[in-house]
Simulated assay, not measured.
Amino acid sequence: MEDTLTITARKAVLTGLAMVGATAILAGCGTAPSATSTKSAGKSSYVPCMVSDAGGFDDKSFNQLGLEGLESAASSIGATPKKVESADQTVYASNISSLVNQKCNLIITVGFLLADATKAAASANPSIDFATIDDSSTTADNVRPITFDTSQAAFLGGYAAAAYSKTGVVGTFGGAQIPTVTIFMDGFADGVAYYNSQKNKDVKVVGWDVDSQKGVFTGGFDAGTAAKQAAQTLIDQDADVILPVGGPIYQSAAQAAKTANASGKSIVLEGADSDTFETDPANSSLFLTSVEKGIAQATKAVVLDSAKGSFTNTPYVGTLKNDGVGIAPFHDYAKKIPSTLPAELDKIKAGIIDGSITVKSPAVSK
Rank of each mutant, 00 (worst) to 15 (best):
S86K: 02
A54F: 10
A124C: 08
D149Y: 15
A79T: 06
A161H: 01
P145L: 14
L67Q: 13
S98T: 12
S86R: 01
I107Q: 02
S61A: 15
G158C: 05
A120G: 06
Y92C: 07
L67R: 08
G158R: 03
L114E: 00
P126K: 12
L114N: 04
S127D: 14
S76P: 05
L114R: 01
K82G: 12
G157S: 09
S86Q: 02
A153R: 03
I133R: 02
C104F: 03
G158W: 02
A161Q: 02
A121D: 00
F57N: 05
L113M: 15
N95Q: 09
A121V: 07
P48H: 06
S136M: 14
T90C: 10
A79I: 01
I108G: 00
G111H: 10
P126M: 11
G55K: 01
G69H: 02
L106C: 06
G69W: 00
L113D: 05
D134P: 03
C104A: 13
T138Y: 03
K103G: 12
V84R: 04
E68A: 14
S86H: 04
C104R: 01
D53A: 14
A131G: 09
D116H: 07
Q64T: 15
V51F: 05
Y159K: 06
L65K: 11
C49Y: 04
S123T: 14
T138M: 10
D59L: 07
G158S: 08
